[in-house]
């Protein structure tokens, strides 16, 4: 499964950088670009065709509900709105909403759900053993050599949850050992060969 590409459009520098650092904790996603300039957004989005656009509504040229209609070449793109305005959820139509005061876990879960939904759409009848985005993320961390405790700390979940995910991953893939899981992660582009120590 290919990496999910993400474009960020947000005029506040701290939010852009913060979002980038949180997204880096996602297993199977890459940030194409962060945009602070409203004028460039449509051009860049139509050219890069990201899977997901995370944008502040004030970066978008529309007051109407249908924010997506200007992205002519990026119709399949999921739109995630981010704002300090709690009422965006009702004001606009989007695939998901993030707020400045969301904690890291909430942001990660929201984005993973989006990635999951996309994956399901694309591979509707692929084998049922496809890992969920969260499982892929955990698998990536396992492959990087992290312990259960370290994974739990990084993703803000309990060790118990990590263990459950690991069990499910092993069951779905039929691979038990860490080195076997690492090979799987590389074969499926979850991590690159250079990242493995």
């Amino acid at each position: 499964m290919p990496r999910t590409s993400i474009l960020i459009a947000e005029n506040i520098c701290l939010i852009r950088k913060g979002l980038r650092s949180v997204i880096q904790k996602l297993g199977n996603a890459e940030i194409l670009q962060s945009i602070s300039n409203k004028e460039e957004l449509y051009d860049i989005a139509n050219r890069l065709k990201p899977d997901v656009l995370i944008a502040n509504p004030n970066m978008l040229n529309s007051t109407s509900e249908d924010l997506k209609r200007h992205f002519l070449n990026a119709k399949k793109m999921s739109l995630v709105l981010i704002s300090d305005d709690e009422s965006i959820d009702t004001k606009y139509k989007a695939d998901a909403f993030l707020h400045y005061n969301d904690n890291q876990n909430k942001i990660l879960t929201t984005l993973e759900e989006i990635i999951d939904r996309k994956a399901k759409k694309e591979s509707n009848n692929k084998s049922n053993e496809t890992l969920s985005a969260r499982e892929q993320n955990i698998l990536k961390h396992i492959a990087l050599g992290l312990t259960n405790k370290e994974i739990a700390d990084q993703l803000f979940i309990s060790i118990h949850t990590v263990v459950t995910h690991r069990k499910n991953i092993t069951q779905k893939l039929g691979i038990k050992s860490v080195s076997g899981l690492t090979v799987y992660a590389i074969l499926n582009n979850l991590i690159s060969m250079d990242e493995v120590k």
């Binding site: 893939l173 038990k176 076997g180 499926n188």
Partner: peptide, 15 residues
């Protein structure tokens, strides 16, 4: 033997 099993599975299922 666990690793051996994994290698087999990887070669059969994923490569």
């Amino acid at each position: 033997e666990e690793k051996l099993l994994d290698l087999r599975t990887i070669m059969i299922k994923y490569v």
